[in-house]
Each structure stands twice: as C-alpha cells, then as structure tokens.
C-alpha cells in the first residue's frame, strides 16, 4: 500500500478527509480487500478496544464505526424471507465478532449515505446515546404515567434509516395523522419536509386491500 493511500485512510479514520475524497475512498474500500483489511484494523478493532476501555469516541467517525457494527443485524434481517412474529428481535441480537468483514463493507455504504448532514448527525447521536445509560434511564410506561422511579435501559441499536426517501402513501398517512398532534413549529417542519422530499419514481402508488378509492373529488 502506498504512503499516500495510507495517509488518506488515516485521515478518513480521523474524520479529516474531504467529503469528496471520503466518497472515493469508500468506493475504493468496497473493492480493495487489502485496503478493507487495513480499515478494519484502523476502525473496527480500534473502536471496539476504545469502547471496551470506556473511551468516548469523538466526531462523526464514532457514529459511522458504530453503524458498521449496528447495521449488521439489519442487513441479515432483510435477507431472511420468513420472519418470526417478533420480527424486531433480530435488531436486538448481539453482533458476532465474526461479522467484521461484512461490517467493513457496510461502512462503505454508510459513508455514502452519511453525506447528508442530518443523517450523519443522527448516526453520531446513536453512539453518543450510550453514555447516558446510567443517569437518564428509560422509564417504564406505567411508571412514567405516575411520575415514579425509572428502570434500567439498554440503548437501542441504530435503525437503518433511509435519508430523503419519498414517503409511501402509507407513511404519508402516518405523517399527516401525526402532524395533528405535534407542536406548531415541529408540525410545520414535518409537513415542510414531507412536501420537499425527493419526488417519487413512477406514477401513482396502487393501494392495497379494500380501500376507498375514486378517480375524482
């Protein structure tokens, strides 16, 4: 591996590489096994060691490394055609250490997606949510209603978000229904975001089931 490439990889690890170069590096990572292995040593192993020592990683890098680890069950879940009733459990299963290679591949995907500022921020938030475990626990709903004492909490895994996705008709329904219960500013932001999301490919979405559908007002 040449010195320049090694330097770029190091800069990427330190979150000091320009976004455009990051994207190129991410693409190269996806097809260069040697580079991939080196990134694995830099990022994944290093992150795990730091995490085990209780060292808090700084910068969006922490979120992206975390995303590699956390995205793995999601990728697995999507490849399984038959899901048990409690499908969400797959998201909560421990990540096996042997998933490292696939995780490195996933980091390339995350790099590309993370170019959207909002998405990067959310990834950062995921990892840094971990330290709040002890002092801001999640409260059982029944207790919360009576303002009682909180219980312990395990930080949820990072969901596989789809930034900028056009809401399906179903999601549009949920967004509109929810907006009626949001504070005014949040409601305006939510509806504005819905209005300005990427145009949908194709035409009308065919509704499913027994729906009330007409061709005019």
């Amino acid at each position: 591996m040449n010195e320049e490439l090694d330097s770029q990889l190091s800069a990427m690890f330190d979150d000091e590489l320009a976004p455009g170069e990051c994207e190129l590096m991410a693409r190269r990572l996806s097809r260069d096994e040697q580079l991939k292995a080196r990134w694995g040593r830099y990022a994944v192993v290093g992150a795990v060691i730091r995490a085990e020592r209780g060292v808090r990683l700084n910068a969006p890098l922490a979120g992206r490394v975390s995303a590699v680890l956390l995205a793995e069950p999601a990728l697995t879940a999507q490849s399984v055609p038959s899901i048990p009733q409690r499908a969400g459990l797959r998201w909560w299963q421990p990540v096996a250490a042997t998933a490292l290679a696939a995780g490195v591949a996933a980091v390339c995907v995350m790099w590309l997606h993370a170019q959207a500022p909002g998405y990067g921020a959310s990834l950062t938030a995921q990892l840094s949510a971990a330290p709040i475990r002890s002092d801001t626990p999640v409260i059982p709903a029944s207790v919360a209603l009576s303002a009682g004492q909180p219980d312990s909490y395990t930080v949820p895994r990072t969901p596989k978000t789809l930034p900028g996705v056009v809401p399906s008709t179903e999601l549009a329904n949920y967004v509109v229904a929810h907006s009626m219960f949001s504070p005014p500013v949040a409601r305006r932001n939510l509806l504005s975001a819905f209005m300005t999301s990427e145009p949908a490919p194709g035409g009308a979405e065919e509704p499913q089931g027994n729906v009330k559908k007409t061709t005019g007002p």
Binding site: A74, A77, Q78, V80, I83, A87, G88, R90, W91, G118, Y119, S122, P159, K160, T161, L162, P163, G164, V165, P167, L171, Y174, V175, N189, L190, S192, A193, F194, T196, S197
Partner: peptide, 13 residues
C-alpha cells in the same frame, strides 16, 4: 414484514 426505518426531514419513523 421486517423492521423498517425511514426519515421525513428530521423526523423519524
């Protein structure tokens, strides 16, 4: 039927 996530602006689903 698998768990799915989406974002609408800064809102999440």
């Amino acid at each position: 039927s698998v768990p799915q996530s989406a974002t609408v602006g800064s809102s999440s689903a």
